[in-house]
């Protein structure tokens, strides 16, 4: 089976995000870059599927030179090869342009199933997987927490509020992974060493023949306002008094009740 997993390199969840003074983006210095956690679920599922059904796993990623580390991480986990789309013009790509570039790269590869994370934790758009499936013209199941594949039959579980959908479709398709699908593996040391030698093909927008024009652009980044300090209720010391004061504040100041 030919399996593809798309990954994105994102800042670590604990990294301190500072918006550049001109609002054109974030300060990248000092940031630890990691594989998007949802993409990790995708890579893990791809590897599990390979281990069960045979075949190989190709990692596709868009990003500057540093994104190579993330591709290598996935290769260390056990994927066979990678495609690195490195084009400065794609650095500010929106979800559509990103999906289009991925689709262009994937079209040139044999594939039976494509895994994406349900969203990237940096821009949280949750669109790339879906658009990718549309462009490729294959079915998609998003937010998957359980996946069974039997021949070309696909059965996926997707939680919705208060229930779970069991969705059936067939290969080839796009699956976007979310927490609960699996526990991503820790790369073994031989895996890490071998990953250094695995092939990664470099591509740019021109080679893929895709437009780098974003359909939407980030006009400006503004950090969220500093959180105002907490308030201690002091007017009355009895529980009743405090409750009354709280109710008053919630109604009049916070206007939530």
């Amino acid at each position: 089976m030919n399996i593809i997993a798309c990954v994105k390199q994102v800042p670590d969840t604990e990294a301190q995000i500072k918006v550049k003074a001109d609002g054109s983006g974030i300060e990248e210095g000092g940031i630890k870059w990691v594989m998007n956690p949802y993409d990790e679920f995708g890579v893990e599922e791809a590897l599990k599927l390979k281990e069960k059904a045979g075949g190989d796993v190709t990692i596709v990623s868009i990003g500057p030179a540093r994104a190579m580390e993330t591709i290598r991480t996935a290769l260390a986990m056990g994927a066979e090869k990678g495609v690195h789309i490195d084009d400065p013009a794609l650095n500010a790509a929106d979800a559509y342009t990103t999906a289009a570039a991925l689709a262009a790269a994937i079209k040139g590869l044999p594939y039976d199933i494509i895994f994406c994370g349900q969203r990237a934790i940096d821009d949280d758009s949750a669109q790339v997987g879906a658009i990718l499936a549309e462009i490729l013209g294959v079915p998609q199941v998003t937010f998957v927490t359980k996946l069974e594949i039997d021949g070309t039959k696909v059965k996926a579980v997707r939680p919705i509020e208060g229930a779970q959908l069991v969705i059936e479709t067939s290969l080839p398709c796009v699956i976007t992974a979310t927490k609960g699908l699996n526990e991503p593996r820790y790369a073994s040391l031989p895996g890490i060493m071998k990953a250094k030698k695995k092939p990664v093909e470099a591509k740019n927008a021109a080679a893929l023949g895709v437009s780098t024009d974003a359909k939407s652009k980030v006009a400006k980044m503004i950090p969220p306002p500093a959180r105002p300090p907490g308030k201690i209720l002091c007017a009355d010391d009895t529980p009743e008094g405090k409750a009354a004061e709280l109710a008053k504040l919630l109604r009049e100041e916070a206007k939530v009740i």
């Binding site: 670590d12 604990e14 630890k32 526990e183 820790y186 790369a187 073994s188 040391l189 895996g191």
Partner: peptide, 22 residues
């Protein structure tokens, strides 16, 4: 178990990731 099999407690895997990343 850790380096060859990468097979060890999930909570320890998390610890190692934390050490790697932060």
């Amino acid at each position: 178990k850790v380096l060859m099999d990468a097979d060890f407690a999930p909570e320890l895997q998390l610890t190692y990731r934390n050490m790697e990343n932060n």
